[in-house]
Simulated assay, not measured.
Amino acid sequence: MSSFAITSSSVSSDVIPRAIKRLFHQASIGDQSYRFMFKREPADEVVAIDCETTGLNLRTDDIISIGAVRIRGDHILTSERFERVARPDADMRTDAIKIHRLRQIDVEQEAPIRNLLPDFLRFVGGRPLVGYYVDFDIAMLDKYILPFIGIELPNPRIEISSLYYERKYGDAPPNISIDLSFSAILADLEIPSLAQHDAFNDALMTAMMYVVLRDKAKRGVRIPRENNQAVFDPTGG
């Protein structure tokens, strides 16, 4: 989970275009051995993911670690996890090192991200991908996946900040201050804060958020709002 400024909002606004794109990808996939990505996975299974990167520029920055964990129903399957560090092509900048605590020397012996893709794609299969501002993570992954198999990730996406917004602010009056930061979600859902900007820890906390928010939605439970809301801060600050 990057702490650089991210201003994405809900990822559900282009559901129809994505459905059309999924059909196009299914017909045009370059490597037929990856057609399993379009297979319906076991019911009620999703994968929480997180990527640490050298920055937020999709063109010039690279992934340096990927964390993912499977969720089945209300159970987080910590024994079914994906955790890898990759050697980026981009230089490791000082500001990024301060966040994810991985130095050039820590990654120089690791495989490049393209070598990790087969295992990652088989791990996620066709399951929906859950994330915090998941569009960014998927866009970074697609930078490598598209030239590798000829398509982008076709998996449905579930945005944690959107689920949280619906439970807390979905019935809010106009002009209320909104805080969608990672720390605010953790606090409201009473989820323990693990060491952040570690890809697997962030994926695990995201998985816990998903399970709690899913349960609240099933039971019709909303998250209480204070009279004085914090100012809007979507960046996790």
Rank of each mutant, 00 (worst) to 15 (best):
M1K: 09
I6H: 08
T7L: 12
T7E: 12
S10G: 14
A19W: 12
I20L: 15
F24R: 13
Q26G: 15
Q26E: 14
F36L: 08
F38N: 09
K39S: 14
V46K: 07
L56G: 11
L56N: 14
D62V: 01
V69Y: 07
R70M: 10
G73P: 02
I76R: 05
E80M: 09
R87H: 12
P88Q: 06
M92S: 10
R93M: 11
R93P: 02
I97H: 07
I99N: 03
I105M: 09
V107L: 15
A111C: 03
D119Q: 12
V130C: 09
Y132L: 06
Y132G: 04
Y133N: 15
I138C: 13
A139Y: 04
M140G: 01
D142Q: 01
D142V: 07
K143H: 11
K143A: 06
Y144M: 00
I149F: 07
L153H: 00
I160D: 06
L163A: 06
Y165S: 05
R167L: 10
G170H: 04
A172S: 12
P173C: 06
P174S: 04
D179P: 05
S181F: 08
A184Y: 01
P192S: 12
L194T: 01
D202I: 00
A203K: 01
T206F: 00
M209I: 01
K216E: 04
K216N: 09
K218G: 01
R219C: 05
R219A: 13
R219K: 14
P224D: 07
E226N: 12
N228L: 13
A230V: 00
A230W: 00
T235I: 09
G236C: 02
